[in-house]
Computed example of a mutant assay.
Amino acid sequence: MATTSITIRMDENLKKQAEILFESMGLNMTTAFTIFTKAVVRQGKIPFEITADPFYGEANQARLMKSIVQLEAGKGTAHELIETDDE
């Protein structure tokens, strides 16, 4: 069977985490992606559920807009943002 190369881009930290996990399973990145791709082709779909970030959901966006309107009208309390080192 002929092989080919592909190039993908991803966050460096994510790549390192994946390599560590795959290594603990006895896999390398190429084998892991090959397994994933074979599952996609065999099942005709992504082999796990992909969901949207609930932050962008219609209900949350409506709530945010309502809060913005209230703040602009001088009602409610605005809090300072707290920065974290998360991602």
Rank of each mutant, 00 (worst) to 15 (best):
T51P: 07
Y56L: 00
T30C: 03
T37D: 07
T30E: 13
Q61T: 12
T7I: 13
N28Y: 02
E87I: 15
T77G: 05
T37Q: 00
I8S: 14
D86P: 00
T84P: 01
D11G: 13
K16V: 04
N28C: 05
T4V: 15
K16Y: 06
A18P: 04
F33V: 08
F22V: 02
Q17K: 14
E87A: 15
A39V: 02
E58R: 06
E23W: 07
V69W: 11
D86N: 10
T31V: 11
F55Y: 10
S5P: 10
A62I: 04
T77I: 07
L21S: 09
I50V: 14
E83L: 10
S67E: 15
I35A: 10
A32Y: 02
A18H: 07
E23C: 03
K75C: 03
P54W: 06
L27I: 03
E19A: 12
G57M: 01
A39M: 03
N60L: 06
H79F: 12
I35L: 05
N13C: 11
T3V: 12
A73Q: 15
A52W: 01
T77L: 09
E83H: 10
I82H: 10
I82V: 14
A62Y: 08
G76H: 08
D11V: 14
D86C: 00
D53I: 06
M10W: 12
G26Y: 10
V69D: 14
R63C: 01
N60Y: 04
R63Y: 02
H79T: 11
N28W: 03
V41C: 03
T84D: 08
V40L: 04
G57C: 08
M29G: 08
M25T: 08
L27D: 04
Q43Y: 00
T34A: 06
D86L: 08
T31C: 04
Q61I: 13
I20L: 11
E19V: 09
A59W: 02
K38F: 01
T84Y: 09
F55M: 03
R63L: 10
R9Y: 13
T7P: 14
A52M: 06
V41N: 06
E23D: 02
I82D: 10
L14E: 08
A2D: 13
E23R: 03
A59N: 10
R63Q: 05
E19Y: 11
D85H: 13
I6V: 15
I68P: 07
Q70R: 15
E19H: 12
R42S: 10
T37P: 08
E49T: 02
K45D: 11
A2Y: 11
G76V: 03
A78D: 00
P47N: 09
M10R: 13
V40Y: 06
L21R: 12
F33P: 08
I46C: 03
N60A: 00
P54A: 07
F22L: 05
P54T: 00
E83G: 00
M10T: 15
L71D: 05
E72R: 04
G74E: 06
Y56G: 07
I35F: 10
L21M: 08
I46N: 02
D53P: 11
G74P: 06
N60K: 09
K66L: 13
T31R: 11
T84V: 09
T7G: 15
K66W: 01
G57R: 03
H79M: 09
M1F: 14
K16Q: 09
S5H: 13
